[in-house]
Design a protein around this nucleic acid. Structure first.
Lengths: 131, 131
DNA sequence: ATTAATGCAAACACTTTGCAATGGA
DNA sequence: TCCATTGCAAAGTGTTTGCATTAAT
């Protein structure tokens, strides 16, 4: 929670609320999810502040921007390398905690110097399988 | 090129041009890349027609919509399962042709029935490494 | 006191839609 | 002829920006 302290950053009530909302949140919220969740309690909350804070957190490495949703950016407070399961029916995005081995022969890497990777698994979640 | 024939679909000059532009294109163009490339030769080409045609091709399984770019949708005429290398410097997206083994223990799959996956490799391409 | 952050409104970028006109089949 | 498609313009959705005000340090 004191991730924002230091370097001239100010700890405003809005930022604290956004950080608390994100802390441990595994729902991969978009900016407007955050706004809607907090505007009741903080009536002056604005989208500009949400985006501003997300940008700050992202730049400081406390937040990862996901590109899994074609409609909008989603944010993941878990910055440890991990992968995602995406339900093709209900669009739910679930973290994959297990470390998955990826065997990618270096001679196939097209001259790239690879620094990381991200796997999207597509499927049907347990509750969508039942319907 | 006669992928569109049948089922009441009409083969208009605009659609033919878009399909020809996409055929074998490995640059993962966005809608406006396609529009800009074709509007010179087809002055009446419109974004609506580009989006319309992309939608038709996507629904018929001749095109894949990529979610790798946070700014806009990109399209890939290669619908065979494959992965992508993304240069973190120049944002270039390159196909990975080799089949990559992914070891994902079923007991870790959170009850999902997995139907496919897509890997984004992040790195620096050969020419960006040199700068 | 200083200066970063807020939040409104406006601008922006990308995508979708309504609908009259067009033109393949 | 018939009806899918075109293409303009307008609207919709998500994101960013300008700037005067506010408030954390």
């Amino acid at each position: 929670m004191d991730k924002l302290r230091g370097m001239g950053l100010k700890l405003t009530p809005q930022r604290i609320a956004i950080m608390q909302y994100l802390e441990g949140n595994t729902g991969h919220p978009a900016a407007d999810d955050i706004y809607k969740a907090l505007v009741q309690q903080y009536p002056t909350m604005s989208m500009a502040t949400v985006y501003n804070t997300l940008e700050v957190l992202k730049n400081r490495g406390h937040l990862r921007e996901l590109t899994v949703d074609p409609q909008k950016k989603r944010f993941d407070p878990n910055v440890q390398p991990h992968n995602h399961l995406i339900c093709v029916a209900c669009k739910k995005i679930v973290d994959v905690h297990s470390a998955i081995k990826v065997l990618f022969p270096p001679e196939e890497q097209g001259g790239f110097e690879i620094v990381g990777h991200h796997i999207e698994f597509y499927g049907r979640c347990a509750s969508c399988k039942k319907n």
